[in-house]
Design a protein around this nucleic acid. Structure first.
Length: 860
RNA sequence: GGGCACGUAGAUCAGCGGAAGAUCGCUGCUUUCGCAAAGCAGAGGUCGGGGGUUCAAAUCCCCCCGUGUCCA
């Protein structure tokens, strides 16, 4: 990066000098006469016991100092976003404050909620879990305090100079650090296709802030300036709190009493891990993650199990839920929504603890079983088995060792061995913005005025063409709803050409026409939306909100929408929940939802300033993910459900008609899917089901309500018939065997063996087998049983004579019979040509038996 | 999203190419004043579903479905 990028007016005015750090070789700026940058490892920690700030601050005091400082300097304070980044498909968790504004705000699609703004965003990073408690500055869950500015070419807020000045003012002014001890290190930053210069702020060994200036985009090797530049800063709350207190580790400063209490029963590292993870778990569950075996739910499970393992190892450690509660109460002082529904939180966690205990129990049984088996072979359990058990049973090695009589030594790199097994797993796909194949209008094209937000009932309208490309048309205003928010596209007509798809791209709505057209810019067109389709989609969308509200009300506030789909035939909603829906719960949900419909409550759709909406309704607004923008579109079902949503909705719940749940699936551990129909489709579905029931009733000759009883009776009868059939067959075959054994035409003595040859009636293979078994039950009996079935010849040879192995007899018959076959000394079977070849084969078989029997008698 | 493991009687599991088994539970009988217990006898299985390979599949292969677990 060009050094001039860092040549700030602010530095020169204040008398900063640029130096090269003798430790890391990076350039840095400072007021003092410093030889090295002020970050570890170039400068060791020197604030422990000698804090450089003018006062010791608790985390909440530090947050307040920071936010109010930036408010005084013209920033708007923004409330935190959820820690689960539902609005992004490339990551699960909010890992930095700027994640709140990616990709829509940073790419200029949607205006920021305020500009400039300041926020303290709780984040979660799980890539350095093993460092927690070892390196004092690591946390999985932490808060990134930040000030952001989004600069458009026509409207610049502030950039490098002002950012650095504000930062310096905070540390050297507000917090009273010695300005000569602060270093601003030059560091190029790159991420997510953007890059730019950045300054890393060091003080007495600790990096206390990073100032990033997103200025360029990279496309392969080409780097070009961004139309929108972004000030992306990050000030670690935990680090700054630690620095202000100067305690031995960051954990005392941030976790307070919980940490010191845990220290009385746990080693320092474990205490830090437990305190850290407990905080993360509180945020995760509150923000709608239910522990599970996949995706973000797995991380919740991982953190919970790490805590449980540590607690299980230690004598006299406190109860898991108590720790979660203490941690939750502490966080709630700053974020009141955390653990606000403690009972619900407990239910979710209790279910998870029980699962874990069940897993361990199952694991222990497996361990014992395998060791016993290995012991019989004179072997013992090795490290491979421990890895296998952890990987497939979730059994930690220390628990397995407890269970084993002869345990192996658990190697240092145990979890490394586990990781090795997963080394070949494919990496996650790169995030790509949706709509990659959509054409992009020239940048000077005015935005489409979207009218469906405020008026979902107008279906016929006039408008003007702004731009067109192939089958795509952009209008100056439209009532067509583009695919989005789980609602599929509207269809209809522009003049007399069919509109097959409508999509959103940036500020524009693109209409795809069925065929090539000759629309020109400025031309007036008439739009007509397919009314039936739209009405059905509206019913399904509003039904989704009603169901979501009903589910939260019946199951508890841990229920969040994890995905949704609204089509013309059916709709689906996926929710977070810790177990399959019980039939009674489902009925209650359905009843409540239909009652809300019957009550005909108003459904209000309106825009409201973000901060006001958040204050009134809280975070559950973001059921479909966080929605950027200064104003949120609110869809409110009076006294029941409020969500930020861009879809088309009915204005009264009665328009939904009714909701018919069609089924539930557990699509993954912790996520339940409900499939349902509403509006006209609900009626159709009910009619279809009713017709099916009546048809079944007609065929059974009973009234519909007696169908279950009739079916049950029928099945019982069928079972009875089958059983007696099987018994009769066995008896018949037994009888046949007796008859054949007594029939001199079929059974003869050949040397030492008794040979039965019988061409049976049409018997299938299992029946032949049964007959053979009965004929050769006594020693030294041989049976050759040919049969013909479905135009093919079947042969079965049975033998209880060691001198006359059945497979060898069969082998002798194969030369004439052909076909494939095989078996062993006591039974062999083959299939081939029927008729003459089969008869010849039987003769050959008889000869073979005689030969073998004679050979046996000749031998002494 | 991927790896691995597992789906066999009401429950827990064994069997892992050549007649579906064990233990507990259940039913009946014997013993007992009765219960518990014991002994004897018995019922209970489309071996998760569907394809394929094979003379022969619970068993081997493929695809689904379900469950568990680890990892991203």
């Amino acid at each position: 990066m060009d050094p001039s990028e860092y040549d700030l007016k602010f530095f020169h005015q204040e008398g900063f000098h640029r130096r090269i750090c003798s430790g890391c070789g990076h350039a840095f700026w400072s007021l003092g006469d410093l030889d090295r940058c002020q970050e570890d490892p170039c400068t060791p920690y020197s604030f422990v016991g000698a804090p450089p700030f003018n006062r010791a601050l608790s985390p909440s005091e530090m947050r307040e100092v920071f936010l109010s400082y930036f408010e005084r300097n013209g920033h708007t304070r923004i409330r935190r976003y959820p820690i689960v980044a539902r609005w992004r498909n490339d990551v699960f968790f909010t890992q930095a404050s700027v994640y709140d504004f990616q990709p829509w705000v940073t790419s200029g699609v949607i205006p920021p909620p305020a500009n400039p703004l300041t926020i303290s965003q709780p984040c979660l990073r799980l890539n350095d879990l093993q460092e927690i408690g070892r390196e004092s500055r690591y946390f999985s869950q932490f808060e990134m305090m930040a000030h952001h500015a989004f600069n458009r070419p026509d409207h610049e807020i502030y950039f490098k100079d002002r950012t650095t000045e504000l930062c310096h003012g905070l540390f050297a002014g507000e917090l009273g650090a010695d300005p000569r001890k602060i270093s601003y290190k030059e560091e190029e930053w790159e991420g997510g296709g953007n890059l730019g210069p950045s300054l890393s702020v060091g003080l007495q060994g600790l990096e206390i802030a990073t100032l990033v200036f997103m200025e360029y985009t990279r496309n392969g090797d080409r780097v070009k300036p961004m139309p929108l530049t972004v000030v992306d800063t990050g000030y670690g709350l935990e680090r700054n709190t630690w620095m202000s207190q100067g305690t031995a580790t960051a954990y005392e400063a941030n976790f307070g009493e919980l940490y010191t209490d845990l220290r009385t029963v746990l080693v320092p590292r474990d205490a830090a891990v437990v305190a850290d993870h407990a905080r993360a778990v509180n945020f995760l569950i509150t923000d709608g993650v239910v522990p599970s075996n996949a995706k973000e739910g797995y991380y919740a499970r991982l953190l919970i199990r790490r805590i449980l393992r540590i607690l299980a190892r230690a004598e006299g450690s406190p109860d898991f839920l108590q720790i979660i509660d203490r941690s939750g109460r502490e966080i709630a002082r700053s974020f009141p929504e955390i653990g606000a529904n403690r009972e619900d939180l407990h239910r979710v966690l209790q279910a998870e603890v029980e699962r874990y205990e069940e897993s361990i129990k199952r694991g222990r049984v497996q361990v014992r079983r395998l060791e016993e088996r290995l012991e019989k072979e004179g072997r013992t359990v090795g490290v491979d088995e421990l890895v296998e058990w952890y990987d497939s049973l979730g059994l930690p090695p220390d628990v397995a060792v407890e269970e084993l009589r002869v345990p192996p030594v658990v190697p240092e790199n145990f979890y490394g061995l586990v990781a090795e097994r997963h080394a070949s797993d494919k990496p996650e796909k790169e995030y790509s913005e949706t709509g990659g194949e959509l054409p992009e209008p020239p940048p000077n094209t005015p935005a489409t005025d979207v009218l469906y937000y405020l008026d979902p009932y107008t279906l016929s309208f006039r408008s003007h063409v702004l731009w067109s490309h192939g089958p795509w048309v952009v209008l100056d205003r439209t009532y067509f709803y583009p695919t989005g928010g789980g609602q599929i596209t509207d269809t209809g007509k522009l003049n007399d050409i069919l509109v097959t798809e409508v999509a959103r791209r940036g500020p524009w709505v693109l209409h795809r026409l069925e065929r090539v057209h000759e629309f020109r810019p400025e031309e007036e067109v008439h739009g007509q939306i397919d009314a039936g389709r739209r009405r059905q989609l509206m019913a399904h969308h509003t039904a989704t909100h009603i169901l979501n509200g009903a589910l939260r009300s019946v199951l508890g506030p841990h229920v969040w929408q994890a995905g949704a789909f609204k089509g013309t035939d059916i709709a689906r909603i996926d929710i977070t929940h810790y177990r399959p829906l019980q039939p009674t719960e489902l009925h209650e949900v359905e009843r409540l939802a239909n009652r809300v419909i019957a009550e005909d409550r108003p459904v209000k759709s309106y825009f409201e300033p973000r901060t006001e909406a958040e204050r009134r309704f809280g975070f559950t607004l973001y059921q479909g993910g966080a929605v950027p923008g200064k104003d949120l579109r609110i869809v409110e079902i009076e006294n029941f459900d409020v969500e930020a949503c861009g879809g088309t909705h009915c204005t009264h719940t009665s328009e939904v008609g009714s909701i018919q749940v069609l089924g539930t699936d557990r699509i993954q551990d912790g996520v339940i899917r409900l499939t349902y129909a509403a509006g006209d489709r609900a009626v159709v579905v009910r009619e279809e089901r009713d017709a099916a029931l009546h048809e079944a009733a007609r065929q059974l000759g009973v009234p519909p309500e007696k169908v279950p009883a009739a079916v049950e009776r029928l099945l019982a009868e069928l079972e009875e018939i089958r059983r007696t059939g099987r018994q009769e067959e066995k008896r018949d075959i037994g009888k046949l065997a007796e008859d054949l054994g007594a029939d001199p035409k079929a059974t003869q003595t050949v040397g030492p063996v008794t040979l039965t040859v019988a061409r049976t009636l049409v018997l299938n293979r299992p029946q032949l087998q049964e007959l053979s078994r009965r004929l050769t039950r006594a020693a030294d009996h041989v049976a050759i049983l040919p049969a013909e079935s479905e135009g093919r010849g079947l042969l079965f040879v049975g033998s209880s004579s060691p001198q006359v192995p059945a497979d060898l007899v069969l082998e002798a018959m194969r030369s004439t019979f052909g076909g494939k076959g095989g078996g062993n000394a006591s039974a062999a079977t083959a299939q081939g040509e029927p008729g003459e070849p089969l008869t010849e084969a039987v003769a050959a078989g008889r000869a073979a038996v005689e030969r073998m029997a004679r050979a046996a008698t000749v031998e002494p």
